[in-house]
Design a protein around this nucleic acid. Structure first.
Length: 171
DNA sequence: CCCTGATTCGC
DNA sequence: GCGAATCAGG
């Protein structure tokens, strides 16, 4: 006797889903051994889908015309995806010299900074208060949040004023 | 690697 | 109706 999507749980599911929670998060909160697949399955079954403000991703872009299950799961060893090498992008800004301000992330120091930790500089590099973001690095050497500001292809016109403005949110 | 949702299909 | 497996993208 597990699961069973009682109205109670369905209600919680809808609430959390519309709340912007991710499927895995909802599954974890609902407990009861439900997996994110179960949540997603139910969400679609209910007719819910494609909410605003998902989570990290900006919608799974690229419309998929409902793939009709090609490639039967028989023989493996099939060249699936071919990734290209990384262009090793560089941050558009170099350690802004602003007063060291403690933040939620930024506890990692040069000593504790691990290989897969976000290396976004927090504070003044010449200060003893200097640290790094330290969260899980997913895009290059930065976490997703910092990668977005670090790897900006172009700066929308506005000048240093706007740059400093947008930067302050991440320092 | 981690993550996200989407879809199919056997149960 | 349910959800694991799988796919496809970030």
């Amino acid at each position: 006797m597990t699961a069973g999507w009682t109205e109670d749980r369905v209600g919680a599911l809808k609430k959390l889903w519309l709340e912007g929670q991710s499927a895995s998060q909802i599954a974890k909160q609902l407990g009861g051994g439900v997996t994110r697949n179960a949540v997603i399955g139910k969400v679609h079954r209910l007719g819910l889908s494609g909410r605003a403000t998902p989570s990290q991703p900006a919608r799974t872009s690229t419309f998929r015309p409902a793939r009709t299950r090609t490639t039967p799961p028989a023989q493996p060893s099939a060249p699936r995806r071919i990734e290209a090498a990384q262009p090793a992008p560089r941050p558009v800004v170099a350690a802004p010299s602003l007063p060291a301000v403690a933040e939620m992330p930024g506890t990692a120091t040069v000593m504790t900074l691990g290989a897969h930790m976000c290396k976004w500089p927090i504070g003044d590099p010449s200060s003893t208060e200097f640290s790094f973001c330290g969260r899980r690095a997913s895009e290059g050497v930065y976490c997703q949040e910092h990668a977005r500001v670090a790897y900006q292809p172009q700066m929308k016109r506005g000048g240093k004023e706007e740059l400093a403005r947008s930067l302050r949110r991440y320092i």
